[in-house]
Design a protein around this nucleic acid. Sequence first.
DNA 1: ATATTTGCTACGATTTCAGTAGCAAGAACA
DNA 2: TGTTCTTGCTACTGAAATCGTAGCAAATAT
Lengths: 114, 114
Amino acid sequence: MTKPPKTAPRPGRRVRGSTTGRPVMVLLDLLGRRWVLRVLWELRGDPLTFRALQAASGGLSPSVLNARLAELRDSKIVEQRPDEGYALTRQGRELLTQLAPLTAWSEKWVKSLG
Amino acid sequence: MTKPPKTAPRPGRRVRGSTTGRPVMVLLDLLGRRWVLRVLWELRGDPLTFRALQAASGGLSPSVLNARLAELRDSKIVEQRPDEGYALTRQGRELLTQLAPLTAWSEKWVKSLG
DNA sequence: ATATTTGCTACGATTTCAGTAGCAAGAACA
DNA sequence: TGTTCTTGCTACTGAAATCGTAGCAAATAT
């Protein structure tokens, strides 16, 4: 009995909670996994080594970080550069651009929470 | 022995992987929990009843849905309206507006994945 | 009165994550 | 050449989150 392969969600395939595989559902599934948003966020600047990324993201366990990085590489959002470490791909940077306004929103949000 | 209270992440408090409690970190923690992005997405239109929301989100278990809704209500992103069901607050709608361009991005993204 | 729908709670099984230890490969130094 | 660091990552165990299903009380419809 071999283990089922664990891959990143991919368009066309069935995704958690969606039989359609619609792109945005696939994306929401991918981004909704623990630490993914945070890891992307920490990669918004310069490339980081595995260990630096782990520290920046708040010390998540290396096994989980490695799993998330595998998914993100598989999805062409993150890439590994020799002698530099992990970095966003061009696509990944675009994605993060979409997410950037969240900072401003979150500032207003916390005020409303008192 | 009472159960430890499980609350939504809140600014100022320590959040998973961050001792600073910076707003954007708190937000990333909240949004990074499973099903949260999907649930918000499904609420982008009209209000939905608990069961309708559960079905729309792909049949997640009611206990998890209830937990997520509690967190989102606590965070003033979602509200429960009598005789209507669950809906985004004004803030929640603003947040989703920030996330809306993800659809377009995800379309391009899937093409690049072949 | 009976049947349905709705908003949940309970609970055991399964999956994921946390936390720590440690190893192989390469660079830096002695 | 040997030793020490750093880096990227795997292994392992226990804890926590999630799944999947069952079911119940209140409200509504028939």
